[in-house]
């Protein structure tokens, strides 16, 4: 069971793969599809994300928002106001947010 999840602003992803490299759970992959910029964007391909934020920390384009299950409350690193409306959230074939 996933304890966390990630949402990508896929239109601004540049497919650099640094998040994939940083993910300890191997949860991320490049999509075969490309965004309007012409880059393969990153998708969450497994249900094992822990919400550790590693991917978001190394993402040069600041396109990753990380969520984690509520009980273990941690102070958010940043407020989310004014950010979510830009995020393109889609569901891929496997029914996972990508």
């Amino acid at each position: 069971m996933a304890k966390g999840t990630v949402v990508f602003d896929i239109e601004n992803c540049k497919g650099c793969e640094l998040c994939i490299e940083a993910c300890p759970q191997d949860s991320l992959e490049l999509s075969p599809r490309i965004n309007a910029q012409g880059y393969h964007y990153v998708v969450l391909v497994k249900d094992n994300c822990t919400g550790c934020t590693n991917c978001a920390l190394v993402c040069p384009d600041a396109v990753i928002t990380v969520y984690r299950e509520k009980k273990k409350t941690r102070v958010p690193v940043a407020r989310i106001s004014g950010v979510t409306q830009n995020i393109t959230v889609t569901i891929d074939e496997e029914g996972k947010p990508s």
Binding site: G51, T53, I64, T65, V66, Y67, A78, V83
Partner: peptide, 8 residues
Amino acid sequence: MECVYARP
């Protein structure tokens, strides 16, 4: 869930 990381 709660947001633990977002673009500032």
